[in-house]
């Protein structure tokens, strides 16, 4: 017994326990619900039969049903556009800002800190504010763009089916910029100054320094930021609910919102679960591709 305690105190058991505790928690409160979602996706179930456990197994019939819905394809494309554009724009703008505020001028770090204000705002509040800013008839964004001569008439940001998805992306990028900027600042700060000096001495221009010094040295940070951004963007439900509700005519509907609509607006829990499972599969696929690509890079 004392030996066990000693091993616990000094050996790897202590480490294992620490990891196991957190993983066990996540297993119970995150993995199990996900497994339950997978189970529900192959059962005949709706909001009202949720309480009973004996539910008929229907195989992949729910999948056939949901994927055959006319909006399924639309939602899939929207989700892809939403995630890719959001993540890329957040990353690019975040990187530009991180580099800009890294320069030496008075107040640089204070201003950078102010950007974080966007991060601490609840998404629901941000959605409400943007809905107000982007109102078609009396929104201030239309007015500002109009007075700058950039647009004629009004853009109906929320109700024009060609624009609504991009309004959602704008608001989401706004939310995501601070996080990207901050983590990238951390990455930038980690690059030793003498590497730059050496590059300058070798006659590298600013652009060359960026391409051949900054980017390669930031690879690990970029990877981390990218995967976290993708996760945050795929989780973005509150913003959609407050801003466009997926409309008009599903023009800005994305998978995470659609799944919720199926489950909670038409009580089709099975259908909602199907969409959720497809989301899980897609993310796993992307993650595997990402891991494999970094492996290959290391080997090459």
């Amino acid at each position: 017994m004392t030996r066990m305690i000693a091993r616990f105190r000094d050996g790897s058991s202590f480490d294992l326990t620490l990891v196991a505790l957190a993983l066990a928690y996540l297993f119970v409160f995150a993995a199990l619900p996900m497994l339950y979602t997978v189970v529900m996706s192959v059962q005949k179930i709706d909001m009202f039969t949720l309480g009973t456990l004996a539910r008929p197994f229907v195989g992949l019939r729910n999948y056939a049903h949901v994927l055959a819905m006319p909006v399924a394809w639309r939602v899939a494309t929207n989700t892809a556009i939403f995630v890719v554009l959001s993540v890329v724009l957040q990353l690019v703008i975040g990187l530009v800002l991180a580099i800009y505020f890294r320069q030496d001028f008075p107040g640089a770090s204070t201003l950078r800190g102010l950007f974080l204000a966007g991060w601490v705002m609840p998404a629901l509040v941000v959605g409400a504010i943007w809905r107000w800013l982007l109102a078609g008839d009396f929104g201030v964004v239309n007015f500002l763009l109009g007075s700058l001569g950039l647009i004629k008439g009004h853009i109906f940001w929320i109700s024009d089916p060609h624009v609504a998805l991009y309004s959602l992306i704008i608001a989401n990028v706004w939310l995501g910029i601070p996080f990207n900027m901050l983590l990238l600042s951390v990455g930038l700060a980690a690059i030793p100054a003498d590497v730059y000096e050496a590059a300058s001495l070798d006659g590298a221009s600013a652009i060359q320094r960026f391409l051949f010094v900054t980017l390669p040295m930031m690879r690990a940070t970029l990877g981390a930021v990218l995967s976290l951004s993708i996760i945050f963007t795929m989780q973005q439900y509150d913003l959609v609910a407050a801003l466009t509700q997926g409309g008009p005519s599903n023009a800005s509907n994305v998978a995470q919102y659609w799944s919720w609509q199926l489950s909670f607006e038409t009580y089709d829990i099975a259908g909602g679960s199907v969409v959720a499972v497809v989301m899980i599969l897609v993310v796993i696929l992307v993650a595997i591709l990402y891991v494999r690509s970094t492996r290959l890079e290391q080997q090459a």
């Binding site: 993983l23 619900p33 996900m34 795929m234 489950s263 899980i280």
Partner: peptide, 16 residues
């Protein structure tokens, strides 16, 4: 594994 538990938003985890 830790990151994978984050795939689904709260809106979809809430029912289970």
């Amino acid at each position: 594994a830790v990151l994978m538990t984050q795939v689904l938003p709260s809106s979809l985890m809430v029912m289970p």
